[in-house]
Design a protein around this nucleic acid. Structure first.
Length: 291
DNA sequence: AGTAGAACCTGAGCGC
DNA sequence: TGCGCTCAGGTTCTAC
């Protein structure tokens, strides 16, 4: 579940279970995900109190009492579900999932309040690490991450500066985490369709003085699409009482993503959603109304 | 300096 | 029922 809105939703769900709570027990069921877990991972968390849960780009940052930060990335297929003590069959029972996907429950965090936070990731493209808070910004995971979409410093002028001489396709520029952080393949497609901009046009085609209005609108559209997705709520945490997992609430709001051959939803447009490949990823778009 | 392609890994869906 | 193929919300490394 992993673009900015999903990660934000996960953070919102984690906060009440984590903040002010202590890691009572950490169960690690394999050596690592994309990377090995750091040495002594479980032991370094055990007994630590959580002071805050934040998001940077698509990373979840769990701040600890001792000045360290637990870093969690969901990769392509990671999800988190929270089991409160009321969900256990008997008081004190550890939740036991029988479904096939339980094989991918790689890490469980048992909190002092009885909550169980379960990290599931079939493809294991996710990662976890523990860093000192003051080392975060310079760390290789974060040093090349671009501006947050809701940072007020993201402006039309900012885009003008960074789109200058950028021959890359506009969609790939939106996907570039070093430029703007957190936009993934779904929302890049959605943003460009809502904007009526072709994903294939060069980013620099928007860098000119005459495109100032379009750039401002692009900034607003990026925020609008992401904010609406966040407001719609994530799936995993919200539905954690449903044993059959993700219901994919967002897909109902998709205009183009995974809608190849569907009629274009733009009012008055008679186009059809097409699929192309850019940077090895699927781009969904309407050739009629995206110019 | 950019960019295309592959790699990491598993599961779902489809055609045969 | 099963095989082989393609595709998947991310990131990073290699090769032109």
């Amino acid at each position: 579940m992993p673009e900015l809105p999903e990660v934000e939703t996960v953070c919102n769900g984690l906060r009440p279970a984590l903040v002010g709570n202590v890691f009572e027990r950490v169960i690690v069921r394999r050596d690592g995900l994309r990377f090995p877990f750091p040495t002594g991972f479980a032991g370094r968390l055990t007994g630590q109190k959580v002071t805050a849960v934040r998001r940077r780009s698509k990373y979840i940052l769990v701040e600890l009492d001792d000045g360290h930060v637990l870093i969690i990335h969901l990769g392509m297929s990671g999800s988190i579900r929270i089991i409160t003590s009321g969900d256990a069959q008997r008081p004190g029972d550890f939740y036991h999932e029988r479904s096939k996907s339980a094989a991918h429950d790689h890490v469980s965090f048992i909190m002092g309040g009885g909550e169980q936070i379960i990290y599931n990731d079939p493809r294991r493209f996710g990662l976890m690490d523990i860093l000192r808070r003051e080392d975060l910004a310079a760390h290789k995971l974060f040093k090349n991450i671009g501006i947050e979409p809701f940072d007020e410093k993201l402006t039309g002028d900012f885009l003008s500066k960074h789109f200058q001489n950028k021959a890359a396709a506009l969609k790939l520029a939106l996907l570039d985490q070093g430029l703007i952080a957190g936009i993934g393949n779904i929302y890049a497609c959605e943003i460009l369709h809502q904007m009526g901009l072709s994903p294939f046009r060069a980013a620099k085609s928007l860098a000119g003085a005459g495109d100032a209005e379009t750039r401002d609108l692009l900034v607003r559209t990026i925020r609008d699409v992401l904010a609406r997705a966040i407001a719609a709520g994530g799936s995993t945490l919200r539905d954690h009482k449903q044993t059959d997992g993700e219901l994919g609430y967002f897909q109902h709001n998709f205009r183009v993503y995974d809608r190849e051959d569907a009629p274009c939803p733009t009012p008055g447009c008679h186009g059809v959603i097409l699929r192309a490949v850019q940077g090895g990823r699927s781009t969904f778009y309407c050739a009629e109304c995206q110019k």
